[in-house]
Structures are given as structure tokens and as C-alpha cells.
Design a binder for these strands. Structure first.
Length: 437
DNA sequence: TCTGGGGTCCTAGGACCC
DNA sequence: TCTGGGGTCCTAGGACCC
């Protein structure tokens, strides 16, 4: 059904498939008793709400609002609360995406985030767009238990507009909105506040409002030069064109690799000792190195940063970031080599008496493993190192997190984040399988 | 007491070169 | 009164996304 062609062809219509309240939906799959009940999922460290169901939303809970502020409301209405369980969500995400690939063809699915994919609707006759999307929606729900909403249009921005409308009125639209005529597009844009557009954040929203532009339709009717001047150069031009139905944001090759890899975390409690700061950064380095190896890349630049909260003088929450970077003599993905550069940076950053809230490592300047430029004075990672890394990755992947780890990452991990309300990893750990009684 | 973790793209401006 | 022109590369920072 789908043509096997190396070139990604741009279809006349695209779609975006977006999982409804994704993290909450995943939790509900294993807790059917929570169907139609309010559910929220918290960020790492149980800091704030990052996913909520419609029921929770209608109670007035705010997305990305701090958990402690929402707590009274949550308790009053008996809202189910979960810490985030990324093993579960990652696995459920793959199942959803697999299903989409069966329908649209592997090459026509661009996985945009853990819960969203763009589809290139090639070879779907215009008259059947709605039916096609509805079938996808029903199948995903049947096979994975996760409900999705689908928006279809000639450009990615218009798909997003359609998707928003399909979510706003799930019953009326069946969760599918197709913008395939000028009239429907106009109607949709008139109903979309300009600040809800994909590509318009808080700053631009304020700016647009000040200029008297309130709906997406208002923005669509501005000329491109105005967009270039006022909305970040070519970014603004593209946005206006996409609103007019001229596709500027092409489908991306799914095989593209990341350009930077970061691992950063808030600490479960404030850290003041160098020892723990080192452990944390060593742990993040190991994690980042794993991500690096998974995409078969090596990094040439490494940045370490810490966030301190020295409010002793001001009595205010006033986080400040300090960063240092190193350029490695040779790009590498070997954990202990990366640590060898990361740890001295931590030591340089550390100030006695400071209170640390967060730390992180960013690897950039990534190059494919196959074409590492070797440095005259350094051997590239020996084969032994490479196979050691492979072995560790295999064990950690099949057994459990960090079955094998480096001593520098610490054994007690006092600084680890809180995840008091995490559900089981039903789909990725044998010993956490759901039991049916 | 207490507010996530990862990414992308773009621009402006400085350094440097011929 | 007047101080070239054009190009590249790099970095910091801003804006956005989920």
C-alpha cells in the first residue's frame, strides 16, 4: 500500500496524532478504576503537575502548577496522583507509534515527541481523509488503550490548529478534525486565539495582543515582512505562510540524530557537599553517555552546570546557574572517559557553603561513532572500552536500572529525587507485571 | 519548606581573513 | 570632512516546543 521510496514525498495533507493526557492515560490503562475520574501526573521530584485529565482540569487544576499549591484541591476532590514513570510512558509511546507506522508507512511517521507524531498522508484520497483518521484513532485506542486526537491540514501549523479543535470538542468532532477547504481553515483560525498557535509563546502573545492581533486569522492576514520584523525573522515568515496553507515546515527524516544530549535533575534535597555533587554529576554523565551510545555518536564538547540557591542574604528563591565547559581532545562516548573530564569541572564549580538545587551535563558537538577524528596524542577508545560499554548497556537494559554502575556515581544517592507515588513499570519489568486476581 | 527535563532553531555581534 | 567591502566562523542569548 505504501510506496517504498527512499525520498520522503510531501503529501498534500499531513496529520498530527496527539495522545490525550498521555501520562495520565498510561496510568489509567493499568488502573481502569480511574476511568472518568480525575488523574494527575507529577514531574520529577514531584515538583509540579505535568499531565492532567479533563476531569482534573475542570476542577481548576493548572498544568505545570506546583504540586504543593494544588494539594488542597487534589485532596478535596480525591484526585489520583502519580509520580512520573518514564519507563512505562516510553514503552506505551512505542506501542502507539508502531501502530501509526502500520497505517501510514514507516517513512511517513515523524515522531515529534513522546506523545505526538506527524503523519504524511500520502495516497489517502482527499475524500477519505476523515475516515482514514478515524480508523487510525480507533485502532490505536483498541490496541494500546491510549486515546488520541487527530488534526489534519495542508501544513503542520494547520494540523496543530485542527488538533486543538479536535481536543476541545471531543464528542462533537469524534476526536478528528480535517481542514481541507479554505472555508474550514478560515473558520478554524477565527476560533483560535493567537497565543494558542504552535510557535507563539508567551512573549510573542503579549506582543501580538498589543498590536491588536487576537486570533490566528488576524495573524494570517499580516504580510510577511511584518512577520520577519516582529516574530523572530524567518520564523515569523514561515508561521504566516503555514497559516496561509503554504507548507514551510517539512516532514523530518525519522533517522536524524540529536545534536545535543543533556541529563539534568533537581536534587531531592539541597546538596552542600562536594562529594554528593560529584556523585550526581557522575551519574548524569553515565546516563548521558548511554544516550550517546544509543544513537551511535561521540561527543566532543561537554558542559557541566550547577544551580545554586544562596538566598541567605536575600531570603528569596533566587536560583543562579554556573557553567563550565571542556573541549575533549578526541570525541568519545566511553563513560569513564567522559567522567574524567566532567569531574574536574564540578570541582572547579563547587563553592563551599553554597546550596545546590540542581546539576546537569550537556554533551554537544556530536559526531557519528564511525568517523571519529583521532588526535595525534590520544588513542581513540580502544576496542576493549567499546565492548565494555556495550556489555554494561546490555546488562542495565535487561536487568534493571544501574545494575552495573561506576563507583563515582555513589551508592547511597542521598540527593536522588523523590518519586513517592510512582506506579509499577508494568510493561518493562518482569517483576512488576500487572497481576490479575 | 515547596515550581521538571529535555530539546530545537534563529539572530546579533565580535573576531578574523583577504 | 573623511575611515572599504565582503565573507566565514563562533558564541551567547532569546524564543519556542512538549
Amino acid at each position: 500500500m505504501v510506496k517504498d521510496d527512499n525520498q520522503i514525498k510531501e503529501a498534500r495533507f499531513k496529520a498530527i496524532v496527539d495522545c490525550n493526557s498521555f501520562y495520565c492515560s498510561c496510568e489509567r490503562v493499568f488502573r481502569p478504576d480511574l476511568m472518568n475520574k480525575p488523574v494527575v501526573v507529577l514531574s520529577n521530584n514531584d515538583g509540579c503537575i505535568i499531565s492532567q485529565t479533563d476531569e482534573a482540569k475542570s476542577l481548576g487544576l493548572k498544568m505545570t502548577g506546583p504540586y504543593y499549591q494544588a494539594k488542597p484541591l487534589i485532596e478535596k476532590h480525591n484526585v489520583a496522583v502519580f509520580s512520573s514513570n518514564y519507563n512505562l510512558y516510553g514503552d506505551m509511546s512505542q506501542r502507539v507509534m508502531q501502530t501509526l507506522k502500520i497505517f501510514a508507512g514507516e517513512k511517513n511517521v515523524e515522531v515529534y515527541s513522546v506523545d505526538e507524531s506527524f503523519l504524511n498522508l500520502i495516497q489517502v484520497p482527499d475524500a477519505q481523509l476523515f475516515e482514514f483518521c478515524l480508523t487510525i484513532k480507533k485502532t490505536v485506542e483498541q490496541w494500546t488503550g491510549v486515546a488520541v486526537s487527530i488534526g489534519t491540514g495542508p501544513t503542520k501549523v494547520l494540523c496543530k490548529v485542527a488538533n486543538r479543535l479536535s481536543k476541545k470538542d471531543k464528542k462533537g468532532t469524534n476526536g478528528v478534525v480535517v481542514l481541507d477547504t479554505e472555508e474550514k481553515i478560515r473558520e478554524a483560525l477565527l476560533q483560535t486565539p493567537v497565543g494558542d498557535l504552535w510557535g507563539v509563546g508567551r512573549r510573542y502573545d503579549i506582543k501580538l495582543q498589543q498590536q491588536g492581533l487576537h486570533t490566528a486569522w488576524d495573524l494570517r492576514n499580516m504580510n510577511e515582512e511584518w512577520g520577519r520584523k516582529n516574530l523572530g525573522g524567518v520564523v515569523g515568515v514561515r508561521l504566516i505562510r503555514e497559516l496561509k496553507g503554504q507548507s514551510c515546515l517539512e516532514m523530518k527524516d525519522p533517522l536524524e540524530v540529536k545534536k545535543m544530549i543533556a541529563t539534568t535533575r533537581m536534587f531531592g534535597r539541597q546538596v552542600t557537599e562536594l562529594k554528593y555533587l560529584r556523585e550526581a554529576v557522575a551519574t548524569y554523565t553515565a546516563r548521558a553517555a548511554e544516550k550517546l551510545r544509543r544513537q551511535h555518536c561521540c561527543a566532543k564538547t561537554m558542559q557541566v552546570f550547577v544551580v545554586v540557591n544562596d538566598y541567605a542574604s536575600t531570603y528569596k528563591y533566587n536560583p543562579e546557574t554556573f557553567a563550565l565547559h571542556s573541549i575533549l581532545p578526541t570525541a568519545t562516548s566511553v563513560t569513564h572517559e567522559l567522567m574524567q573530564y566532567a569531574l574536574p569541572l564540578v570541582e572547579k564549580l563547587y563553592k563551599k557553603g553554597s546550596r545546590y538545587l540542581k546539576a546537569g551535563i550537556i554533551l554537544s558537538d556530536l559526531v557519528p561513532q564511525s568517523c571519529i577524528q583521532s588526535n595525534l596524542f590520544n588513542d581513540i577508545a580502544t576496542n576493549t572500552d567499546q565492548s565494555l560499554m556495550e556489555t554494561i548497556d546490555n546488562i542495565n537494559c535487561s536487568m534493571r536500572d544501574d545494575a552495573v554502575k561506576f563507583v563515582s556515581s555513589g551508592l547511597t544517592r542521598h540527593w536522588k529525587m523523590r518519586q513517592e507515588l510512582r506506579s509499577s513499570r508494568f510493561t518493562s519489568r518482569w517483576n512488576e507485571l500487572k497481576e490479575v486476581t
